[in-house]
Write a protein that binds this DNA or RNA. Structure first.
Lengths: 239, 239
DNA sequence: GTGTATGAAATAATATACGATTCTCGCAGA
DNA sequence: TCTGCGAGAATCGTATATTATTTCATACAC
């Protein structure tokens, strides 16, 4: 049977093709929040019909990456502070649990890898490289939660990270103070894991780590509204 | 403009029609785990084409209520102990948080309503009415978490309850001992809420409440395997 | 000038039709 | 009797075509 050599032979369905095509563009920012996803247009770019593209978009909608309106169309999910807050809260919850349950399964090598990434974050900070910092941040946490034995919760964590990716660029103004604390908290979490701390303690540390970032953002937002007195236009990227 | 009187005139899309049609049947057990969802068949029953039915099924797949295989088709998600464990763990996490954050928003009337439902559960227990007990259990918890201010987490709670609904019938053998404890724990949670306890304490009480039910089930499972020595067929409802 | 009708263009929603893949089952040969 | 093969059926996947809805621009009335 030659099927072993052919496992990748069947080209994944056009729906999946469309899904990864769109997803890729959302992730890397080519489709930024508010961008309108027009079925025939995307279908044309891919050389397929609108049907599979539609399915892909509905999937993305279910994941919360795009918003959809009947008979009107889809657009990349809007980035507003409220969305950011909701996502960060949810992530603090599921990631905290994932990190705690993955902790006992981490090897010394895993810890070492995470610590190395965290050291890299310090460097990115010194070089004022927010992009690298953000990427390393995700990588650090990925090491810590990816061995979570509950696949459903792992999926939820991945999904929220994806949402964060969309929101990040648009509303996250780099806050060096917070970033520095963040690196220190990472080290603290690593130590808890190393010493085999109570899972609940790890969970709460991971949760609080994220909630603190959220608080920093919310404070920063409030302050921003304080200084510029006029109410910023409510729908900046509308239509 | 007469559209005010017509707001409900537009018949929700056929995709939505198909979705609720299938969802209803999964929820009430007419489509039990393993049931095959054949596109043309369902399309015929609804008098629509296969396209919207397909979309509905993909949505249900994203929610984890049906499993899908390329070029083969969809079937209602299988009920096995592992799935039950995963779902209960996830629910313990999100429901715990939802309950804790909803607690400060509950009125005296909410608490009273919940307590009344809990009293009803005692009665259902005395009358050996598992169906009523299960329904009341869901109703009780709904009151406690539905005011959770994070819509995303509320959605996750709803989704997991839906999954439980599918699994329940097939694998849950009624365990009176656990049920009696359950009612007592409900009352304990209510008291915590009433006295304005620390949110974390409420969260952990709600979480533990569910995890204890899960443990009872797992113990019961292990015991069952102990008595009947042969390994039960691995895929009971297969194909 | 402002607001309201009207029609054309854009777009989504669905139906139909066809092609591709997988499954089923009987038959031939060992 | 068992195993491998192949034809046909069942079913999914997608393209094309049609219909319905929304949106936008224009013109008309007040």
């Amino acid at each position: 049977m030659a099927e072993d050599a052919m496992t990748e032979a069947l080209p994944r369905s056009k729906s999946q093709l469309a899904y990864s095509y769109i997803r890729e563009r959302i992730d890397d920012g080519r489709y930024s929040p508010g961008f309108r996803l027009v079925l025939p247009a995307i279908a044309g770019e891919l050389g397929v019909s609108a049907v599979p593209v539609r399915e892909a978009i509905r999937l993305l909608e279910a994941e919360g990456l795009v918003e959809f309106e009947r008979n009107v169309g889809a657009r990349v999910a809007m980035a507003n502070p409220r969305e950011y807050e909701i996502t960060m809260q949810t992530l603090s919850l599921v990631e905290g649990w994932a990190t705690a349950t993955a902790a006992p399964l981490l090897t010394k090598e895993d810890i070492a890898a995470a610590r190395k990434v965290n050291d890299g974050m310090t460097k990115s900070l010194e070089h004022f490289d927010p992009a690298a910092f953000t990427a390393q941040n995700r990588q650090f946490h990925s090491v810590l939660f990816e061995k979570c034995p509950n696949p459903r919760i792992r999926e939820l964590v991945d999904r929220d990270w994806a949402r964060l990716g969309v929101l990040r660029e648009s509303i996250f103004s780099f806050v060096p103070d917070r970033s520095r604390d963040s690196v220190a908290e990472h080290e603290h979490i690593l130590q808890l894991i190393e010493q085999g701390a109570d899972p609940l303690e790890i969970e709460m540390a991971a949760r609080q780590h994220r909630l603190t970032t959220l608080d920093a953002f919310l404070k920063h937002e409030a302050q921003r509204h304080e200084t510029q007195r006029h109410g910023a236009q409510p729908h900046p990227a509308q239509r």
